[in-house]
């Protein structure tokens, strides 16, 4: 039996839902899910081997969302950090004003100098993305946790945005549509996976890419894995708003757990 502790922000809800909705699906695993919104996972310290909240808000979150009064680190064989702002959308934001040579659209453009975005090297894009990810909660918490334990720590990103955005017109997801139109989605996905794996390894973690069968066109999550996602609440009884494009559902969570089980 491998004892797992899952940490995360709102995205840990998908994994918790998946676990709850598929009892017995992973007989070799036991799991505890510890959620905390915003940066509350960082408001903790190692007190005699127990990850203990140091603020009232963190204590409240732990008490309501699976952490109790603290997490006994010795009680687990491995840890998983879910979501926590490690998202492919960091690349889609970068794409707004930087292009790098791996993007196929660059090589079909008739006049690169006319592009609004600037051409940079692959290394510049990777360095920028790595720097950006480094500041995200997932990597910060990985470093924090790594100081407290030498057991394996897995990091799984937020799901890619829902494929539902294809038919939307809102400016927040315009970069996704531009990337798809340009035929650059595979290269965008590659850059994210490379940067996330590299920086996770730099801090002693193991990056778990999004399960391939949940991905659509490289940068989207297929709708069956997003529809009906739950919010991270004490009783997991509230749904994400209908317009939510960022959170996975129980089916998504189950895929991630299965992928993890195969890696252990």
């Amino acid at each position: 039996m491998t004892r797992l502790c899952f940490f995360g922000n709102s995205h840990v809800a998908a994994l918790r839902s998946g676990w709850m909705e598929h009892p017995g699906a992973w007989p070799s695993l036991s799991a505890q899910f510890v959620g905390a919104h915003k940066g509350l996972l960082l408001e903790t310290e190692n007190k005699n081997g127990t990850l203990t909240p140091t603020t009232r808000n963190a204590s409240d979150a732990f008490a309501k969302l699976g952490g109790g009064t603290g997490v006994d680190l010795a009680a687990f064989d491995a840890f998983v950090i879910a979501g926590c702002q490690v998202a492919l959308s960091r690349v889609t934001t970068l794409y707004r004003d930087l292009r790098w040579p791996d993007l196929p659209s660059l090589h079909t453009s008739e006049n690169l100098a006319e592009m609004t975005a600037v051409l940079g090297s692959q290394a510049a894009a990777l360095a920028t993305l790595t720097y950006t990810l480094n500041a995200r909660l997932g990597l910060q918490f990985l470093r924090h946790l790594r100081e407290m334990t030498d057991k394996p720590i897995y990091l799984t990103s937020q799901p890619r945005a829902s494929a539902a955005l294809r038919s939307m017109k809102d400016p927040n997801t315009a970069s996704h549509r531009a990337i798809l139109r340009a035929g650059d989605a595979a290269a965008v996905s590659d850059l994210f996976e490379t940067a996330a794996a590299r920086i996770t390894a730099d801090f002693g973690g193991i990056f778990l890419p999004q399960p391939a069968d949940t991905i659509e066109d490289h940068i989207l999550t297929a709708k069956p894995f997003m529809t009906g996602a739950k919010r991270l609440t004490e009783h997991m009884d509230a749904a994400q708003p209908k317009e939510d494009l960022r959170h996975g559902n129980a089916a998504y969570g189950a895929k991630v757990i299965s992928q993890l089980a195969a890696r252990l």
Partner: peptide, 18 residues
């Protein structure tokens, strides 16, 4: 002619000549 991308932090931008 080649402005620093908005999401690129200064220290990386300067390393790459932006």
């Amino acid at each position: 002619a080649e402005p620093q991308p908005r999401t690129m932090p200064d220290e990386i931008a300067h390393e790459f000549g932006y």
